[in-house]
């Protein structure tokens, strides 16, 4: 367990770092497509956090095995009998399936966001002729001034 204890801050820290980096890209990049990619990294890293919670040491994927099947026996041979008795379900130790389900949902949501975002980018490029954040901001500021003068 000492190794796992030492790894804990490291793996969560990496997860949090990836979230922060993705967020930074989504907020600061000048190219709109890169912003979306950063957003995707941010969303995926949130999933990393959930999956980190789901891992059970010595566990296997949450697909139920018969306790006396060869697969179950080979898994059991790697583990302490007392460990299996405490943490196993019918003789096999599984990882927690709930975060898997949640992140499956989140991945699909991320892809949906990406599709809509890219469609908007394609329209922006067709309308403004650029996908550079600074150039867009300058164009909008100019349009706002012109609008005031035109309509006034």
């Amino acid at each position: 367990m000492t190794l796992a204890l030492a790894l804990t801050p490291y793996v969560y820290g990496l997860g949090f770092f990836m979230m922060a980096a993705g967020l930074l890209i989504a907020l600061t990049s000048r190219h709109l497509i890169k912003r979306l990619i950063g957003l995707g990294v941010f969303q995926t890293s949130a999933g990393v956090f959930y999956i980190l919670l789901s891992k059970v040491s010595g566990g296997t994927a949450a697909i139920r095995l018969e306790a006396d099947s060869p697969a179950a026996r080979s898994l059991a041979s790697r583990l302490d009998a007392a460990y299996i008795a405490t943490h196993g379900v019918d003789g096999v130790v599984y990882s927690n399936p709930l975060p898997h389900v949640l992140i499956l949902t989140a991945i699909v949501v991320g892809a949906a966001t990406l599709a809509v975002g890219l469609s908007i980018i394609v329209r922006i490029r067709e309308t403004y002729g650029t996908v550079d954040f600074e150039e867009l901001a300058a164009l909008e500021a100019k349009a706002l001034r012109d609008g005031r003068e035109d309509e006034a």
């Binding site: 367990m1 796992a4 789901s54 891992k55 059970v56 943490h87 927690n96 709930l98």
Partner: peptide
Amino acid sequence: VFGDPGSPPSSYVG
């Protein structure tokens, strides 16, 4: 703790 089978997520609803 990473991989802890007794953590709240792994021991309750999961």
